[in-house]
Amino acid sequence: MTGAVIASPYPVAPGLPFTDDSRYRRRRARSQAMAGLIAFAAFLGVSILWIILGYVTVKGAPALNLAFFTERPLPYGEVGGGIAPAITGSLMLLVVAAVLGVPIGIGAAIFLVEYGKGSIIEGVRFASDLVAGLPSIVVGVFVWAALVRNVIGNFSGLAGAVALAIIMVPIIIRTVEAVLNLVPHTLREAGLALGVPKWRVILGVVLPTARAGIVTGVVLSVARAGGETAPLLLTTLGNQFFNWDLGKPTGAIPIQLYNYAVAPYPDWHEKAWGAALVLILVVGVLSILTRVATRGSVR
């Protein structure tokens, strides 16, 4: 008997409790207005990224050709030339900086999470945050005074790598510390309960579990260091020629970008945009590669 109305055995309550009223309508309007505002804020935040990407691509793409990636910069007036010494210089600086900074950063993070106690943790974390907050030019000035002036004696790739490592370390500490804290304590217990020494549990269980997050932190720090200009101006100086000697001035993409950009020639300006695009591409490709390589584990 579908559709049959069954009489309720209970009386109907007077008045409808769900009725709309003006106060409710006002609140709903305000809520919708706020939701619209924050959606707009999110839109702005994302659009800044796309505007920069788009603008740099439009301005920089015409500069890109084979010579741009394979040749050294030429003096003004000569046609062609590229930023190859800056690309190889940046890669060399970043590799050396990573070799210096990654073990320190990961080691410090392991200390904070696995071994540190109370006030020591607070002290290390506070110091690391201070270093992270240092303007990068200050790092450059410090390395210039300490290494370029005194120990090494001249502008050099090594000094630049040290400056970049100083910038990388606090970033690595903070991200790796966060990731290690995400590794469940029960996994450490499981390892220890097998009669495995603590250091072996950290190497064999904790770090592999956090692998993806650690890689992400390292790449993040490399990306950040790759774009630093100020400390490099004071340490590696820049170089128009290919250089593989860490003891000599070395080119780097941001320095080359800066040199091209401050010059008064339209051709160099286009090359500066090209260098900017290459810098973004290098960083972008790096992080995409990590995302793909570390898919599916704790990040």
């Binding site: 996994l187 499981a190 097998l194 009669g195 072996r200 064999g204 269980v205 592999p208 579990t209």
Partner: peptide, 29 residues
């Protein structure tokens, strides 16, 4: 190593396969 333990919540090592989990203790020592 003489007195093993099994916990309330199953806690296999997520970075390891089934077989690797079994021999994790052996391999780590």
């Amino acid at each position: 190593r003489h007195i093993g333990m099994v916990f309330q919540r199953p806690n296999p090592f997520p970075s390891m396969s089934v077989a690797e989990n079994v021999v994790a203790g052996l391999r780590l020592v």
